[in-house]
């Protein structure tokens, strides 16, 4: 027994997507059928609870502007690498990560400048010439700059991210 209402019609009724004719037929039935009315009411209450809980869950995962910016930077780096057909080397990827981490603390431009300054004052002399061999002095130089620009927390985070 289904009182002439299919699961799909119930669902469309709850969702408000029934045609006018279907809507009128089901409304007429609900008025005269107590069990169906009770079922409908409870479904509506459940639906409202689900909507509210879904909204709360959405709010629980808010994203900070800094994380948003770091994410955008990473995606643009991937897009750029894909466009130039140059697969990013592990070192290049690590440099991008360091820049993204630093941007969170002191902004994008300051991060770029700090990276360049650290490279210039290390044996590598420039970002392009950084290798596994001269990575450590470059990283130490960058950490020293980061302590001033980003504070101890930022510098520590950078150190963790920069370990090969």
């Amino acid at each position: 027994m289904n009182h002439g209402i299919t699961p799909n019609e119930w669902e469309r009724h709850l969702n408000g997507t029934l045609t006018t004719t279907e809507q009128e037929r089901i409304d007429a039935h609900l008025i005269g059928c107590l069990p169906c009315w009770d079922f409908y009411q409870r479904m509506m209450t459940l639906n409202a609870k689900l909507q509210e809980a879904g909204e709360m869950k959405r709010d629980a995962f808010a994203l900070s502007d800094e994380r948003l910016r770091a994410g955008l930077l990473n995606v643009f780096t991937r897009i750029h690498n894909a466009e130039t057909d140059e697969p990013a080397t592990p070192l290049q990827t690590r440099l991008n990560e360091l820049e993204a981490v630093m941007s969170v603390f002191c902004g994008e431009q300051a991060a770029v400048n700090a990276m360049q300054a650290a490279a210039a004052h290390s044996p590598a002399k420039s970002l392009k010439q950084i290798t596994h061999e001269n990575w450590e002095p470059f990283l130490q130089r960058l950490i020293a700059i980061a302590q001033v620009l980003c504070g101890r927390t930022g510098a520590r985070w950078l150190l963790e991210s920069g370990r090969l």
């Binding site: 699961p7 799909n8 119930w10 469309r12 709850l14 479904m43 459940l46």
Partner: peptide
């Protein structure tokens, strides 16, 4: 149609759990 009927059955299951 499958989306609609599956959603309805999930709701009904939740109602039973509640």
């Amino acid at each position: 149609g499958t989306v609609e009927s599956r959603l309805f059955h999930v709701r009904k299951k939740l109602l039973r759990i509640a």
